[in-house]
Design a protein around this nucleic acid. Structure first.
Lengths: 316, 316
DNA sequence: CTGTTAGCGCTTTCAG
DNA sequence: CTGAAAGCGCTAACAG
């Protein structure tokens, strides 16, 4: 493993000046085809790779995007991340992936790190408790995922629509006694908006709402199911697949196989354990694509921040 | 937001030469305390951050470590990653985290990317099918996790010991008819080694082995449990928590609450769904710490590659 | 202990 | 179309 080649080596090897090599590297159109060919041949032959650090230093752009997810081991966020990376890589950007673990402090540290690295932009999975005001510096090179914020670009899921979709589906099957197991409304999207979807359809259809709110985990689903279940209950719509897991477990224990359970998230494990549970896919991967495209549009073409929404889809 | 300050600005502002500022930045001891104070004051006052790209280019070291996990949304790998990041951050390194999805091709692409970035080192979560020969170039700045390889540094889990530990625990409780639900032996660690642990203890204790091998998912556990279960079965030891999930589900369905189920991985969801299932923690986080320390020892002090093992621990 | 002087590898004027 | 030259911000000899 010898010392890595530089642009100057390639220049000498192909008998041109180093600026010409640079031009070839940067797809500058005003290089004669013949010259370009020759240089490219030498580059390929020697497996030359231009130094990212040198280029970053010169252009003040490392072609690097920061991504802060809330949890790496979240199946849904992972789907979005894969979407993001697909578009990013395709456009020649690399990514630095980090995990906030829902901690504003950790997020701040990561932001500092990304600032030191001088990343070109940031995609941030927002969460309740995040201090969005600290993001002012990032405004024009930031896309939020999962939560909108005035003046900032964002890609959101259709939380309200997802629950509404599910509810309408159940109503179409003739069910009327449908309860909702949700999350306290401090959690804006998973909590407030999904509940809102439930309440909206109830109102529209003249149903009496019947719901309970708790935490984001299966334990909570289990407990709330116990509190909510009535003899006439026909279905329990849950704010997440994780909650649905707890609910389904409770129903199984008390022998209420007649009650339909639905979740949100299209989680593979849930489907295996309780195959009859229906779910809504919030369009995570699509959201990742959208976020990355929006971010690149902003940093490359100065596009204005805007608020996008990825469509939900029923999964049976 | 004005143009970022440079080392030269700080030099002028504090009335010293730029090399002195550089020395202060690099904790060079031969700077007079008084001077150091003055420079540091200016740095803090102006919130100056030295440019990573410039430093990387000069030192040919971006203080950046690549981490390739097989799946980001794997709870166990996530534990290791957190361990890795803790030590890395503490030692002033940043990380580029990527996901192989068990694909050798994806891994190659990631390796190329990391090479272009000129990262200082690499921590790679090995998997069956990975072409370890391609890693020759990385030899002295690479630590493998989960699989050893001659000549390469690695941190492994005690797969064999984990199953043996569990089996001995069950035997101590007086159980004798203990089956094993595993993974085909092409998967060296999760497959071969965990089975070996089972067989070893069976031989030592004069038990007749009774086992079945399949895939890594819950479906497989479910199917194999059906095949393996006998009237006299007292316990089913599983190669992973995921498999244990499938096994526990089958046992529940056929009403065999008397059979003890155990897994490996200390998975929170499993514990909730089937609280009685016991598990072994393979020491993932610890493995992360070890891997990062070993890697830094190699790249900073030229330590030789060596093969380490993180200890397993019973979790009830 | 500290300032001066060269570059690191690349992009970008500015002249040809 | 192409080359020469001037840096980007920082570190590392080398003299003081």
């Amino acid at each position: 493993m010898h010392k890595p080649l530089t642009i100057l080596d390639i220049a000498r090897l192909s008998g041109v000046g180093k600026s010409t090599v640079s031009r070839v590297l940067n797809q500058d159109p005003k290089v004669k085809d013949e010259t370009r060919e020759r240089v490219n041949a030498v580059i390929r032959e020697h497996g030359f790779e231009p130094s990212k650090s040198a280029r970053s230093m010169r252009t003040r752009s490392p072609r690097l995007i920061g991504i802060i997810v809330s949890r790496l081991d979240s199946a849904s966020e992972n789907r979005s991340v894969r979407g993001i990376l697909e578009t990013l890589y395709a456009r020649g950007y690399d990514a630095m992936l980090m995990e906030s673990e829902f901690s504003p402090d950790k997020t701040d540290e990561h932001l500092a790190l990304l600032a030191r690295r001088g990343v070109d932009g940031l995609i941030l999975f927002a969460f309740t408790g995040l201090d969005l005001d600290k993001l002012a510096d990032w405004r024009d090179r930031l896309v939020l995922i999962a939560r909108p914020w005035p003046g900032l670009a964002s890609v959101c899921h259709d939380d309200e629509g997802a629950i509404a979709l599910m509810l309408q589906h159940l109503l179409a099957q003739g069910l009327r006694h449908i309860g909702f197991v949700g999350v306290h409304a401090e959690d804006v999207t998973t909590g407030g908006q999904r509940l809102a979807g439930y309440l909206r359809v109830c109102t529209e259809q003249g149903l009496e709402p019947h719901y309970a709110l708790g935490e984001l985990d299966y334990q909570s689903g289990y407990q709330l199911a116990a509190r909510l279940l009535q003899p006439q209950t026909q279905a329990l719509v849950c704010a997440t697949d994780t909650i649905a897991l707890g609910v389904a477990k409770y129903l199984q224990e008390v022998g209420r196989a007649d009650v339909v359970v639905t979740g949100v998230g299209n989680n593979a494990l849930l489907r295996f354990l309780f195959p009859k549970v229906m779910s809504v896919d919030l369009g995570y991967k699509r959201a990742g694509h959208l976020a990355a495209e929006q971010l690149l549009a902003q940093i490359e073409s100065g596009a204005a921040p805007c608020q996008l929404q990825a469509p939900s889809q029923l999964v049976e």
